[in-house]
């Protein structure tokens, strides 16, 4: 008799499975998970903490907060950050002082681990929510984070 109960149970479970997919078929329009990506660029907003790429914010006076302490460079596991620095003479005090020339960030090597941002004592670098990082040329992935002609904001070092 198990022969027929097998058939009955088999058909029953198959119909149960079909009812699940059938339910979603009927609600297909509402329940669709797909995002139409390039079309929804305007409305697509990343979360605040989303790790897109590392940037160095500059204020309106073209001043950043990086002192060139190289803690981020040391913290980075992949050699993503390169800081080219120089000792310049501070106008006010006349003392010799570390000053960044270029804060180079190789996006192509970055694993978005966030250790550099954790390590930065002055919050000079932060995460940007930019998620469209692909370029046609690999050299474009190496970026200089400090803008040309920028300088350190006063009072950061201490």
């Amino acid at each position: 008799m198990s022969y027929f109960s097998d058939i009955y149970n088999g058909i029953k479970t198959l119909l149960t499975g079909m009812s699940v997919t059938g339910k979603y078929f009927i609600h297909a329009r509402k329940g669709s998970l797909t995002q139409q990506y390039p079309d929804n660029r305007e409305t697509l907003k990343m979360f605040d903490r989303f790790r897109g790429e590392v940037v160095m914010p500059h204020d309106e006076n073209n001043e950043h907060r990086c002192t060139g302490c190289q803690k981020c460079e040391i913290a980075c596991p992949n050699g993503t950050i390169e800081i080219i620095w120089d000792r310049g003479i501070d106008e006010e005090t006349g003392k010799k002082k570390k000053k960044i020339d270029k804060h180079i960030y190789h996006l192509g090597m970055c694993t978005m681990c966030g250790l550099c941002i954790e390590a930065c004592p002055t919050d000079a670098i932060v995460w940007a929510q930019n998620y469209e990082n692909s370029v046609y040329d690999r050299t474009k992935l190496s970026k200089v984070l400090n803008q040309p002609g920028s300088k350190v904001k006063a009072g950061i070092e201490d």
Partner: peptide, 10 residues
């Protein structure tokens, strides 16, 4: 299309 609607796609 049918597959997409079953699978919550477009």
């Amino acid at each position: 299309k049918v597959a997409a609607w079953f699978q919550l796609r477009l």
